[in-house]
Structure formats: C-alpha cells, structure tokens
Simulated assay, not measured.
Amino acid sequence: MTVSPTGIVTFRYDYCLNGRRETLTIGRYGPSGISLAIAREKLIDAKKAVAEGKSPALEKQREKRRLTAAKTFGDVTEKWLAGARVADSTKAMRKSIVDRDILPAFQNRQLNEITADDLRALCNKVKARGAPATAVHIRDIVKQVYAFAILHGEKVGNPAADVGAASIATFVPKGRALSPAEIRLAFQQLDSIAIYPTRGSPQPCCRSEILRTKRNSSAWYWASCSA
C-alpha cells in the first residue's frame, strides 16, 4: 500500500517472477475505488497467479487492451456476415433477421454484456408474435456470431450455449418415415410379385425409391438383410 502526497491510498503488490521484479497496481482505496476486503481478494488472486508462473501485471495490461479494443455486437456481426461462405439466398435471409430482429436489441452492446437471459427474452418475444422458426434462427445466428468472435481472439462466453433450440420452439413433422418393420414388409411384398420373364424386374427400382425417401441406418440395415 502506498500513500501519495495528496493522501490517495493505492494498493500495490510487488513480486518476483522468472528473475524479474514486477508491480501490480491493485487499485485505489476509497468510495470511488475499492474496499480493503476487495483489495485482499485481488491480492490473493494475484499471489495464486504468481505461484502458477503467471504475471498478474501483464494480465491486467492485456485486459485493458481487450477493453480498449472491445467491439460491439453490431461490429462483429457485420464482419461475420461479410465473411460467411454461404449461398446468397442464405446470406440474405440471415441479414434480414439480423437487421429486423437482432440488431435493434443488441447492436450497441459489448459482447460481454449480452447474457443468455437477454437472448432467451428476445427469442421468446419473436416467438410470441407467431414466428417460432425465426426465433430459432435468431438463437443460431447469435451462436455463430459469438463463435466467430471467439475464433478471432475475443475472450467472451457464448450466451447461446445456455439457450437450447428446443427450449425456444419444437416442430412437429408433417409426415412420418417408414419404420424398419414396414420397410421389411414392403421388401417382402416386392419379392412376392410375379414378373414376366420377358420384362425387367421392377423390384430394384422400387427398393431404391423406398431407400431414397428413408435414408437412415435402419433402412440400409433392412436393405442389406433382404438383399
């Protein structure tokens, strides 16, 4: 702890790391600074960092640089959209959702200011107006924007990681696929059809059509069993 000629009390921590002396300025004491209890907590954290071979002073400098260079969600989203390698129609759809629904809520916020609750509230708002599919798209877009930011060095969490798509909306398929038992029965019926010797067998084409509309492991399994 040091006291300036004007009476300002500053908490500092002097330490040695890798043969060099360093000083960490923990903060100023007082109503506009930090309390003694907080200073003690920061000192404990700094001592742990030194014990692990890390420089708390350098880490504080890095954090200052990150804060100075902090980008808003709108800035990162613009770069993400510009570099996205997707079809023009997909990019146009994403930009429409970004401009209409996401940026009005998050554009000027720092990345570390947007929480999972904020994202969930936005998705629920869009869902309430009768657009559940758009709400799910919003969650997916925000997730990709944060993944892009993290990939390029931003030290932030991804709020979409705590917002599951199923918690926003679920969709009931309009039809259903054939079950494995139904596929096997269909193949058995095909095998029982009498074919004129002079004509080609339709079974291979029918089998292919069934498998084309049911491309999953169970279909291929029954196909191999009945081949």
Rank of each mutant, 00 (worst) to 15 (best):
I38F: 01
D117V: 13
E59P: 04
R100W: 02
D117T: 14
V50R: 11
V86N: 12
D45S: 13
E113C: 15
D101L: 09
I44P: 00
E41K: 14
E52P: 00
L103Q: 05
L67N: 04
T72D: 05
L36H: 13
I97G: 08
N108Y: 03
P56D: 10
W80S: 01
R65S: 14
T68K: 09
G74R: 01
A128C: 06
K95S: 15
D75P: 00
L67Q: 06
P104F: 12
R62V: 08
I114L: 01
G130R: 13
D118Y: 03
N108V: 03
L111Q: 06
V98T: 07
L67R: 04
A116M: 08
I97Y: 07
A121Q: 08
M93Q: 14
L122P: 00
E63G: 04
R94C: 07
P104K: 14
L122W: 06
A84S: 15
D88A: 13
A70W: 06
L43I: 11
A105H: 12
S55H: 11
A87C: 04
A57Y: 01
A57Q: 09
R129M: 12
A46F: 01
A105S: 12
A37D: 02
L122E: 03
K71C: 04
A92W: 02
S55K: 10
D118C: 04
R85Y: 08
K127Q: 10
K48C: 07
A128R: 10
D45M: 11
A57N: 07
E63W: 03
Q61W: 05
T115M: 06
V50T: 10
L67A: 05
E41G: 04
R120Q: 08
R62H: 09
D118G: 01
D101W: 03
Q107P: 00
D45Y: 03
K60E: 10
L103S: 08
L58P: 04
A116G: 11
M93H: 12
A46N: 11
R62E: 12
L81E: 09
E52Q: 14
S89M: 00
A69G: 12
R129C: 10
I97A: 07
Q110E: 04
D117C: 08
D101E: 15
L111E: 01
D118M: 06
A128E: 13
N124G: 06
E41L: 06
G83F: 05
V50D: 02
G130I: 10
K95E: 14
E52G: 02
Q110W: 03
A69F: 09
K71A: 07
D117Q: 15
Q61P: 07
D101V: 08
L67Y: 02
A51L: 15
R129D: 15
T72Y: 01
R100T: 13
T77F: 00
A49Y: 09
I38H: 14
D88G: 02
E113Y: 06
V76C: 01
N112Q: 03
T68D: 11
A131E: 06
A39R: 15
V98E: 05
R62W: 05
R129W: 09
E63K: 11
V86G: 09
G130S: 10
D99K: 15
G83W: 03
T72H: 07
K95F: 05
D75T: 10
L43T: 15
L43R: 15
V76D: 01
D99V: 10
D101F: 09
R62D: 09
A49G: 11
T90K: 14
Q107E: 15
R66K: 09
P104M: 12
D101S: 15
K95Y: 12
A131P: 01
D88V: 10
